[in-house]
């Protein structure tokens, strides 16, 4: 039995949206190296839409796959929708994660939230 689903392995082997956005409108970083997982998300936002997103991750296979999937799920979506991304949605889109790896999907949700919070703090007028 494989450790991860095909979907997880695909996103781990070929992560989407890897990198940095130098002039990002929102940046979020969660986790810590002590626990073995850190995710950093960079967002570009135009007219309340996430037009671009990039990530950097230090972590295990499922952490990298969760970051990659989370970026795919919010890219091109309105900010209001990105705000609603849940870890469950990330895990489901990956065809599931082993129980002890669910925290990786939680971290992905938190990384997106953190980047959006940063965006709102820079643009308080956008906050509903």
């Amino acid at each position: 039995m494989a450790l991860y689903s095909e979907k997880v392995m695909d996103h781990f082997r070929n992560p989407r949206n890897v990198g940095v956005i130098e002039d990002a409108d929102g940046v979020g970083e969660v986790g810590n190296a002590k626990c073995g997982d850190i995710m950093k998300m960079y967002l570009k936002i135009r007219d309340d839409v996430v037009t671009d997103v990039k990530f950097e991750t230090f972590g295990c296979g499922s952490a990298i796959a969760s970051s990659s999937m989370a970026t795919e799920l919010i890219k091109g979506k309105p900010v209001s929708e990105a705000m609603k991304l849940t870890n469950k949605a990330v895990a489901e889109a990956l065809d599931g994660l082993p129980a002890y790896k669910m925290h990786c999907s939680v971290l992905a949700e938190e990384a997106i939230q953190s980047a959006l919070t940063d965006y709102y703090s820079r643009h308080p007028e956008k906050r509903e």
Binding site: M9, R13, D37, F58, G59, C60, G61, A63, I64
Partner: peptide, 11 residues
């Protein structure tokens, strides 16, 4: 330094 072991093993 700077990387995590499981992803290293998988690759």
């Amino acid at each position: 330094e700077g990387i995590e072991g499981e992803s290293l093993l998988l690759l």
